[in-house]
Design a protein around this nucleic acid. Structure first.
Lengths: 155, 155
DNA sequence: TGGGTATCGTCAGTACACCAACGAATTCGA
DNA sequence: TCGAATTCGTTGGTGTACTGACGATACCCA
C-alpha cells in the first residue's frame, strides 16, 4: 500500500509523452525517418559541414548515439560524410540533395503533426508548455554540464 | 535555411526532458534499478498478482518491453512470476520481500530527485506542468486507443 | 622536436521501446 | 463438442540512448 502516484512523477510523464509522440510521428510523419533522425537532418540543413560531435550537441545526442543516427542517414543517402582535411579526427557532415528534399517534405508533415499533438492545449497553454519543459530540461542538463562555474565557491 | 526551431517541437522537448531525467535518476536514485523498472515495481506493490499485460498497461509499456523489464526484475530477485492456475496463458507477478524493501528505499530517493528536477518551477508552475503534459499524453494515447467510440460517426 | 594531453569517432555492453509473427492456452460460436 | 477467433507471452528485428574503453589524430609545451 506504499505505492506512489506516478502521474506526479515528471520522469514517468516524460516517458509517456515521448512514447505518445513516437506513435503519432509514425502514423503522421514517416515510418522510415525517425524524429531524432529528422532533428539531426534539420541541424545539418541549418549548418552544413558540422562534425559529428557538434551535430550531436545541437540536438542533444551523445557521441555513440549520433554515430548510429548518422550511419542510418548515410545508408539512406540523406547525408554525406567526409574526413576533414584540416583535422583527421573529424568527419564533416552535410545533407545530400535528397536529404534536403526529404527535410523539406518532413518539415511540412511535422508541423501538421505538432498541431494535432498539441490540440488539447490552447495557444496560451502551448506557450507555457514549451517554457516549462524547456526550463526543466535546461536546468537538469546544466547539473551535468557545469559549463561556467563562475565563482565556484564552496564545495 | 529552411531549418526549423526544434525548441518549439514537443517531441524534441519530450526527448530532452526524458534524457535529462535519466541522468539525474542515475546519479540521485539508483544505477541498478531504472525508472521504468521502478514504475513496474510500484505497480506490483500497488496491485500484487497482476499479469504481465496488465502490469504493462498500468505503466504504459507494451508486451515486449514489459517482458524484458520483468525479466530483469526477476533476475535481481525483486519480482516473482508464477503461472496462473486459472489461466495457463498468464503469469502472475508479485514483488518479493526484497522487492518491497527496494521499492520503499527508492520511493524516498525518487521524491528527493523530483524536488531537484522540478526546482526551476514554482509550486504553481509544477501543477500546471503536470496538468499540461498529462493532457497531451492522454489525448495522444487516446488517438491510438479508440477505447469508447461512443457514437463514432463520420469517417 | 618529441612526449604528454586532449579530442574525435568507434566498439562493446546494457536497457528501453516499438512492431510483426508465432505457439500455447482459452473462449466463443455454430 | 469441435473448430475459429482471441489472448498471453515470447522471439526477432530495428532504433534510440547511455557508459566505459580504445585507437587515431591533433595540440601544447618544455
Amino acid at each position: 500500500m506504499a505505492a506512489v502516484d506516478l502521474t506526479t512523477h515528471p520522469g514517468h510523464l516524460a516517458r509517456r509523452l515521448q512514447q505518445a509522440h513516437y506513435l503519432l510521428w509514425n502514423t503522421m510523419v514517416s515510418e522510415e525517418i525517425t524524429s531524432p533522425q529528422f532533428a539531426v537532418l534539420n541541424a545539418l540543413v541549418a549548418e552544413p559541414g558540422l562534425d559529428q560531435r557538434t551535430a550531436g550537441e545541437r540536438v542533444g545526442l551523445d557521441r555513440s548515439t549520433i554515430a548510429e543516427v548518422i550511419s542510418r542517414l548515410g545508408r539512406r543517402g540523406l547525408v554525406d560524410k567526409v574526413r576533414d582535411p584540416q583535422d583527421g579526427r573529424r568527419f564533416l557532415l552535410r545533407p545530400t540533395d535528397e536529404g534536403v528534399r526529404t527535410h523539406r517534405k518532413l518539415t511540412v508533415r511535422t508541423a501538421r503533426m505538432n498541431q494535432v499533438f498539441l490540440a488539447p492545449l490552447t495557444a496560451a497553454e502551448q506557450t507555457v508548455f514549451f517554457d516549462l519543459i524547456r526550463r526543466v530540461a535546461d536546468a537538469a542538463e546544466g547539473l551535468r554540464n557545469p559549463a561556467e562555474p563562475l565563482v565556484a565557491q564552496g564545495g
